[in-house]
């Protein structure tokens, strides 16, 4: 073993973690290498100095704080556990709820034009229809359809 290889073994030698075979090799090298021998002595000293590092104690509320967080965690988990046996049902229910919200929030286009075919269309209805591009053409045709304008009011009411 040379000094370069000894680098990997020297700390293990210092703290007694080498296997028998490694130990024999390290000892053989150390017997003939003063530099590595000095390093062993100084690594031992460094290891001793590290023992002097001060220790701190947990502050008084440490356990209580952690237990409180654990309790929150446990409560959250139990809520999820309620859903866990039927995750697909929960997913489907969530989708259904979303669908309801989406449908509910859509503009009510279909019901918005009670006087669609009539001549008495209100100004706001007209505005909505103007915005509704796909039916714009039909609107134009119906608006200018003369036979409809000639119908008596009673017949128009029935038509609605």
């Amino acid at each position: 073993m040379n000094c370069g290889k000894m680098e990997k073994y020297i700390l293990g030698y210092v703290d007694g973690r080498l296997e028998a075979r490694e130990l024999r090799k390290a000892e053989a090298h150390l017997a003939g290498c003063a530099e590595c021998g000095r390093r062993v002595t100084e690594f031992r000293a460094v290891s001793g100095l590290l023992e002097e590092m001060p220790k701190i104690m947990p502050t008084e509320g440490f356990d209580a704080r952690l237990q409180a967080r654990i309790a929150v965690e446990a409560a959250r988990e139990s809520w999820w556990a309620w859903l866990a046996p039927a995750p697909r049902v929960a997913f489907a229910a969530a989708l259904l709820a979303l669908l309801c919200v989406w449908v509910g929030s859509r503009p009510r286009d279909v019901d918005a034009y009670p006087h669609y075919a009539g001549a008495e269309m209100r100004a706001e209805d007209q505005m909505r229809m103007v915005k509704d591009l796909p039916v714009l053409e039909d609107f134009d045709v119906l608006e200018n359809f003369e036979p409809l304008a000639d119908l008596p009011p009673a017949v128009q009411a029935e038509g609605n």
Partner: peptide
């Protein structure tokens, strides 16, 4: 890891 430890102890030394 052994290299890391060796370098650290060299620095500390």
């Amino acid at each position: 890891l052994k290299s890391l430890l060796f370098r650290a102890y060299e620095t500390l030394r």
